[in-house]
Amino acid sequence: MKGMTVIVKKTTQLIAGIIFLYGIYIILHGHLTPGGGFAGGVIVAGSFILLILAYGSDFLNLVKEERGSTMYENLAILVFLFLGLTGMIAGAGIFFANWLPHGTPGELVSAGFLPLYNIFVGIEVAASILTIFLALVIFKEEVLK
């Protein structure tokens, strides 16, 4: 896949970081404002997809990238499952029990386990959508070869 023109590359350079930060904001504030792990994860994946579409596949080593995103995806779902299991071990013996102190509602660090769940689901969604996109791009490169 070839990259696009200089205008697109420069605009992407300016915008991609802001989109990435916005996705992280949506994930971290999931228990306060609309949004959460799923929406923020897709926005984070969107910033990576924007970069790959603008710069083409010569710019990044896509196979290495795909290996990394697959690893992050699997680790994130394992950590999510493990956080659910800690409720079984330490809490009241219920799967997905929210046994951490809740804090004051409305603050950034509050609601016990919910921000942690949001963060790991966000990593999982971002990595899986990026993996699917990279798999499609790599498949096309291999067919063309």
Binding site: F96, N98, A111
Partner: peptide, 23 residues
């Protein structure tokens, strides 16, 4: 749940199994 956003409270606390299934 301690979460101001009701949707996140339902998704990750009351319906944690469903979210695990989606992931």
């Amino acid at each position: 749940t301690g979460s101001v956003n009701l949707v996140t409270g339902v998704l990750f606390d009351f319906r944690g199994y469903d979210t695990l299934g989606e992931a």
